[in-house]
Amino acid sequence: MTRALSFFILIAALTFGAMGPGFAVEPNERLADPALEARARGISDHLRCLVCQNETIDDSHADLAHDLRVLVRERLTAGDSDSQTIAFITARYGDFVLLKPPVKGATLVLWYGPLAILLIGAVGTVVWFRRRKMTGVEEPAPLTDVERSRLKQMMTEGES
């Protein structure tokens, strides 16, 4: 039992350990200063590898990703702030290199489009329900004398 359990824990540790982020960062790329290295990891976690396109440069084994990781660390060591480092990269590769697109004119639809569509839908739904309430649910007109006497007749016919 304990053996099976420890085997299970071992498998789990191996699986999830391997799935951890930053799998591609090689030991010789790391900076000696842990604070700088942490900043570098934070930055490269948000930069797209342009070769693989849906991986961060932190995760990618592509040659260019390696070069960009080294470049990010160089900029930070040279005293650049995080935003200066990111600006250095986007000046060369454009906003596409950012996995999270910046909020600006061309990306407004991207950021707020879904919210706008949701609002339009919500307003439409509210208007539709209100209209139905106003027009659809009218009080039925009371029965006329003729109708009432006919109803009475039908009821007594049924009884006999």
Partner: peptide, 13 residues
């Protein structure tokens, strides 16, 4: 050889 000029041009392949 280092690919740095490539990076300056935005070369990705």
């Amino acid at each position: 050889q280092s690919g740095r000029v490539g990076i300056d041009f935005g070369v990705y392949g």
